[in-house]
Design a protein around this nucleic acid. Structure first.
Lengths: 334, 334
DNA sequence: GTGAAAGCGCTAACAC
DNA sequence: GTGTTAGCGCTTTCAC
């Protein structure tokens, strides 16, 4: 910095102003300083700046372990988008993990050591707890996932409308002529699962179609999807399946393959998350896709607002997913 | 820090020592300071520490955009492992992107602003260029991927033996009775692809089996795998396929499905990377799995060595992949 | 619009 | 073993 100042013939302070408050300088001075900066390849030292401004321009994101044997990688896609979008806003994403026992430990450490300016909280299931804890400590954070029970939650959030996604999927199948459309979803204690399920119910009832005996709730695993769809096929003879996840949808496809049924031709299947599995598996799994890039944009926007004026919290942002139509959602042939 | 010092009845420096050089203190003093730290929930301020020690305990990792429509997510799995392992060593992973035009720009910025202590370089294809550039700037880094042409490269690296992986896959098929085993790989300009291919050649020749007319080199895309395997089936009638990636292997499975052939029963297929697709697709895609967790451990180890004694560079570490055997690698029925 | 002075919170070097 | 001193590189007052 001193070098730049000397080369430009100004004081060190003026260099700082050139970088942080360019409009404070006269145009010609600014140009001279800028040239010196370029010439010397000067970049302000992060540590010093952080110390002085009490901000790190780092946002913390806790990532949970990879789920082997499942199809979904929503988290990973979101991380990519978030890194992209926050980078454009001058922030970097710092990843951390904490053991499942005490997920808050990681947050606490980073908070106390002022390592990050804010967090992005994504873990939907533990969201509540984390949110309450962070709020209590006045830690700035934006949640990807709405606050479910706590209607009084005063923190910014961005979420994707799961019901709309399932509705979209179901309506698509209805349009294809299906009338007996089954739901393979998650256990009842999953708020996310119940929300997605409600979209299926909504679309079915809107079309005057029955849902009784057509819903199943299981663990999010391929084997569970396979098991549930086998039973469903035997007992309720649906011509199409809407699933709460691609993992479950792949399970349905296992059942079909075992029974020598063609996914799409004989029985339709729609998944949720537009995973790489959905994108590549034959003949292409129709799937609900979350607008993660948009979500990242909104999260960063909320983050910027939060750090600029911590007091005022804007309303939550709800995004609508889209449907990626592929081979498994063929017309009803029955 | 001052509070802790006062509560423990020592000077601020002693608190610092308690944190950074505990063995410098007498046991009872240490205990007293430690208790004060716990009581107050004290954590050293990162920015101040970074400024003073000229280190951020951050390692930079450039992530490339997600490849839609492919099966592999090696990068994402590696990121998870790296975050885990580096966390144990007291480091955090900071992600960044840079446009494809100028991948070095991102590195340069972080380097100049002393934002990170070191980089982990993973992009195999641009590895050479990046490595040379970083070395020139004396930026500490560890490469995940060996230096291919530059035998004089004096930087630490960790890599997975792709030839061994393809050899493993091929030998497994040979053991299953297959004799006409085809290779679907990447274009010739991919060093990684040629390396994997050499493992197939090696295993075939070791068993006295022919390779002529059994190899195909295409883009890494599902459609390419499908196309190449279709042609191969018509022209050379192989009973098994070994592929350079799960993406290509899924393409082969498309061809089989279209021809009403059962993957595993009629024609065997083995992929590479043990992606979520391989893990979930019916009837399970046998695939070569890279030991990414081990790789992350070695990378972190190298990183620690590098930062401790920058001058001495240990030898590269080569890891051997394993084979995940699933339904698609059935015996030869011909 | 520009420069001088002060200090962010910590740790390395030294004196005690 | 413990305390004192100095300073990491920057930005934020405040004069000028």
């Amino acid at each position: 910095m001193a070098d730049v100042a000397e080369l430009a013939g100004v004081s060190r302070q003026t260099v700082s102003n050139a970088v942080n408050n360019p409009d404070l300088l006269r145009a010609d001075t600014l140009a001279r300083v800028q040239q010196a900066i370029d010439e010397l390849g000067y970049k302000p030292n992060r540590a010093a700046r952080n110390l002085r401004t009490r901000s790190s321009h780092l946002i913390g994101l806790r990532i949970s372990p990879v789920q082997e044997g499942t199809a979904s990688a929503v988290m990973d896609r979101f991380v990519h988008s978030l890194v992209d979008k926050s980078g454009e806003a001058g922030y970097h994403v710092m990843l951390f993990t904490s053991d499942h026992e005490d997920p808050l430990a990681g947050y606490d450490d980073l908070l106390r050591s002022t390592a990050v300016d804010a967090f992005v909280v994504t873990d939907t299931y533990f969201g509540e707890e984390q949110a309450a804890w962070l709020r209590e400590r006045r830690a700035p954070f934006v949640a990807f996932g709405r606050p479910w029970d706590d209607t009084s939650a005063r923190h910014p959030w961005v979420d994707v409308d799961g019901a709309a996604g399932a509705d979209l999927a179901t309506a698509h199948l209805i349009e294809k002529g299906h009338t007996r459309i089954a739901w393979i979803g998650w256990r009842k204690d999953s708020v996310l699962g119940e929300e997605r399920r409600s979209g299926w119910v909504r679309a079915m009832h809107r079309a005057g179609l029955p849902t009784t005996g057509l819903a199943s709730r299981v663990e999010d695993a391929v084997a569970s999807g396979r098991g549930a769809s086998g039973v469903m096929l035997d007992e309720a003879a649906p011509t199409a399946f809407v699933c709460a996840s691609d993992t479950l949808a792949v399970g349905v496809m296992h059942t079909l393959a075992e029974r020598r049924l063609q996914a799409g031709d004989d029985v339709a299947v729609v998944g949720f998350d537009d995973s790489q599995v959905a994108q590549t598996v034959w003949p292409g799994l129709t799937s609900v896709r979350q607008p993660l890039e948009e979500a990242a944009i909104e999260v960063v926007k909320a983050l910027e607002g939060l750090l600029a004026t911590p007091s005022q919290v804007g309303p939550g942002v709800m995004l609508t997913p889209t449907l990626e139509i592929r081979g498994t959602s063929g017309p009803d042939r029955a």
